[in-house]
Amino acid sequence: MTKSGADGSVKRILIAEDEPNIVELLTFILERAGCVTRAVTDGEAAIAEIRRDAPDVLLLDLMLPKHDGYAVLKSVRASADNAGLPVVMLTAKGQERDRKVAESLGVNAFITKPFSNQDVVDQVLALAGAGAAGR
């Protein structure tokens, strides 16, 4: 349970989610898949954390306090250092419109709640590998 990526390196995941239950769940399944996770509960903290120490993948809830998921995504894509950071967006708003907006902003994966745990893990690992390969 230490190996996570295809290259065998440990992937570091940042979880930006304000529902404590969901944070606990995501932490649980991702650590089981061999990732290291950190969690923030609002958009402002997410942006600050990425700037301080960029993760391999950002798991981003859309409905965040302070700055919502779109704002965080925009900020990441506009940043000098982390523009290519893989972002998986999670949302309970199941509307197609939101997916379109997220894709236009350059999201890498878009997952609607409720989700399959395996699906989240697969997407995150795939992006973590690709992202690592791209560096």
Binding site: E19, L25, I29, R32, P114
Partner: peptide, 25 residues
């Protein structure tokens, strides 16, 4: 409706995913 959907999805996410975790682990 959008709000209701959102509000319903949040607890359902927890229920589904924790149940899934319990089943898989």
């Amino acid at each position: 409706l959008s709000q209701v959907s959102h509000e319903l999805r949040t607890p359902m996410t927890s229920i589904r995913s924790f149940a899934e975790a319990l089943l898989k682990a």
